[in-house]
Write a protein that binds this DNA or RNA. Structure first.
Lengths: 209, 209
DNA sequence: CCGGTACAGTACTTGTGGTACAGTTCGCAG
DNA sequence: CTGCGAACTGTACCACAAGTACTGTACCGG
């Protein structure tokens, strides 16, 4: 809210272009999204578009960077919230997962789609640096979740033999897969339910039944 | 193998066109895949292409149908194999998951991508009937896995309160998400590992630690 | 009042999907 | 051996959309 005011007119237009483009890309793919339709919806000319982005790949890069930054902020905020509610690493992580599931369930029209997943399924369209960004995004998430699981495992020895990297990856898997299922079955409630399945797994592994 | 011999020359070409198209679609998206490049790689003319497919949407539909049929057959085969190795519904399902993970791990270059997931992220490009096919595909898989879980739950009461539809969906989630992670991180071993995480969850829920 | 921001206008090239239709090769049924 | 249909090739064409390039201009703050 207060952030919007700080943006200059140019930055506002740029954000708006990315909003429109992201929505289109998540529904039609990157190649299926034309610059013409973006500028038509934004009420701007093609020249205006190319003032903000060198080319289409530049738009893709800027969109992805923004998406990754946003996701990062959301996770940071939820982790912080959870940490304030419990000192215990396991309880905090379980609270985090609940908050995450709730947030995903509260999206009015369901999750619009993961831009990273979308890019992965069209990676040949993008330059190397954009492709590296999707890879690094997933690596960062793995590390971030893994840290939490390490702290949990210290205090709560796992009931079964389990690789914590795989377990960390599973949250990304379940989220990406849950989004796909939600979209495909037109049921926004699937994503939060899938996150809660993961939560149940974590609970079983570290706390037992 | 023996199946190939049965195909007429036209059917072989049609299959070849779909092979090429599917590979391209999984890497560049549907809109990013041009008919021209498909026919160039197939060594055929545009007329030849339109002899086999009415238009591009017809190709999309045929590809998806073939993909769904194949997946169905693979699962049927693995289920049958597992059933032969154990009469017990839980053990059979766990064997199935192990076989499934092994199969995904044995793919030489990793899983090429799930066509259904790819379509879901570009569903506005397709006609309604194609979109319905992705929905029905996921519904069928849910039902299919749910049946197994029902039979398991009869004999092994779940250790925790769990919704079996969600648990059935989780296999699709983890598979779709695992494929994305494998592609993004350029590590084919992630997908089988994710399936085994799901297997561990099922085991914990019904058999305990 | 000057200069940069933030665009608008115009012109052009290439690619792509799709249509149309006439011709050709080849295996195989009769 | 022949004719017929399957499985294409060749050629020509169209509308239109993406993307590039460059020039022009309104507006706003210092």
């Amino acid at each position: 809210m207060a952030n919007v005011q700080v943006l200059s007119k140019g930055e506002q237009t740029r954000e708006r272009l990315m909003d429109i483009a992201q929505d289109a890309v998540l529904n039609k793919g990157f190649a299926g999204t034309s610059i013409d339709e973006i500028i038509a919806e934004a009420g701007i000319t093609k020249s205006g578009f190319f003032y903000h982005f060198r080319d289409k790949n530049d738009l893709a890069k800027a969109m992805l960077q923004r998406y990754l930054d946003n996701e990062w902020k959301v996770f940071e905020q939820l982790f912080q919230q959870a940490d304030e509610l419990s000192e215990d690493p396991l309880h905090s992580f379980l609270i985090f997962l609940k908050l995450f599931a709730d947030m995903m369930g509260d999206l009015p029209n369901g999750h619009p789609g993961c831009l990273v997943a979308s890019y992965v399924y069209q990676d040949f369209l993008f330059s190397r640096d954009v492709r590296n960004m999707t890879t690094e995004g997933h690596q960062i998430w793995r590390t971030r979740f893994r840290e939490r699981l390490d702290r949990i495992a210290e205090r709560y020895p796992a009931k079964i033999d389990v690789n914590l990297d795989d377990m960390a990856d599973m949250l990304s898997s379940v989220a990406d897969g849950g989004i796909i299922l939600s979209k495909s079955l037109h049921d926004p409630s699937i994503l939060p339910k899938q996150i809660l399945q993961y939560r149940a797994y974590v609970k079983l592994v570290f706390a037992g039944a």
